[in-house]
């Protein structure tokens, strides 16, 4: 196999892996975003906080699945607390108000993480298996496949929950029409916190995969995580998990290609460029539908 092609395939598989992790973070983000249709600035810092928690649990030599699950549950709890203290009191206020209180929550989480785990990037255990397949010169790592499978399972599972459980259907009603949902007897103050919790849970899974894949965790992952998740969710179409998944993959692949063929600066800019282009040309995203107009 010639070097050019090999480089191309390597870039593609790296891009798909990065995209899978963006997808996982974006799915949780999309879920929360669709409830109130506002940028959730706390999502990035929440999932990084949770990933730090997982780091501490793994450092304590807890078995990996237990550490991941416990970190996910704790983060869900923090997400629910944020809903209760930061979002609920301003639920019916002008939409700029919850945005600002979310910024405040993000700042609290970021600072707390800095106090607990320090400001430096730290090494995260690379728990994903290290093996690889050799396909005629091109190396496909096992972990490339694992993150993609994990992200797929997560999106399929979450979509199933949304369409086939009472909780999922209630969430869809709230997303579509909060007042009518209340008239159906759907308790907002039970369902909405659960959505925040679930969004945090899936965000952490994405964060742990990311840190496990690259072997590093840092507080900065929060800010760019919010941007990437926002870009991916918007690109795919907000409220549509397959959209967030697709958006994450497209963003990951195109970023990796920009980094490999143009420059690493181009890679960093791409998330922001995507947000601007989507907002200008396709505000409903690739798979997003306009709300059906009432007759």
């Amino acid at each position: 196999m010639n070097t050019e092609l090999n480089y191309f395939l390597q870039t593609t598989s790296n891009g798909i892996s990065l995209g899978s992790m963006y997808s996982m973070i974006a799915v949780g983000y999309s879920m929360v975003y669709s409830l109130l249709y506002q940028v959730n600035f706390a999502h990035g810092d929440l999932y990084v906080f949770g990933t730090f928690i997982a780091f501490s649990f793994i450092s304590m030599a807890l078995p990996l699945p237990v550490a991941i699950l416990a970190a996910g549950l704790l983060t869900a709890l923090i997400g629910m607390t944020i809903e209760r203290t930061v979002y609920r009191p301003v639920r019916y206020a002008n939409r700029i108000v919850p945005m600002i209180s979310a910024l405040g929550a993000a700042l609290v989480l970021r600072t707390a993480a800095q106090i607990i785990w320090g400001p430096e990037a730290i090494a995260f255990p690379q728990f994903l298996p290290g093996g690889s397949f050799n396909l005629g010169g091109f190396t496909l790592f096992h972990k490339n496949i694992i993150v993609l499978l994990f992200a797929t399972a997560l999106v399929v599972g979450l979509t199933w929950i949304m369409n086939h459980t009472k909780f999922g259907r209630a969430t869809q009603c709230i997303v579509e029409n909060m007042e009518a949902a209340q008239l159906m007897g759907i308790p907002l103050n039970k369902i909405i916190p659960l959505v925040y919790g679930l969004g945090g849970f899936f965000g952490v899974i994405g964060g742990i995969m990311y840190s496990g894949y690259y072997g590093v965790i840092s507080i900065d992952m929060g800010i760019w995580g919010t941007v990437k998740a926002w870009a991916a969710a918007m690109l795919g179409g907000v409220g549509n998990f397959y959209g967030a998944f697709l958006g994450g993959l497209i963003l990951g692949v195109s970023e990796t290609f920009a980094g490999a063929y143009i420059s690493s600066a181009a890679k960093e800019a791409l998330g922001y460029i995507v947000i601007v282009l989507v907002l200008v040309f396709r505000p409903n995203g690739l798979l997003g539908k306009k709300k059906v107009v009432k007759v």
Binding site: K166, R169, A170, Q172, C173, E176, N177, E179, A180, A181, L183, M184, G185, I186, K289, K291, V292, V293, K294
Partner: peptide
């Protein structure tokens, strides 16, 4: 409610199920 406010993007069946939430 005034103006019906059915859940337009959900199926008729899911609308009825929503009504039975309680």
């Amino acid at each position: 409610p005034e103006g019906r406010q059915v859940f337009a993007s959900l199926s008729v069946y899911d609308n009825l199920m929503a009504g039975a939430y309680s």
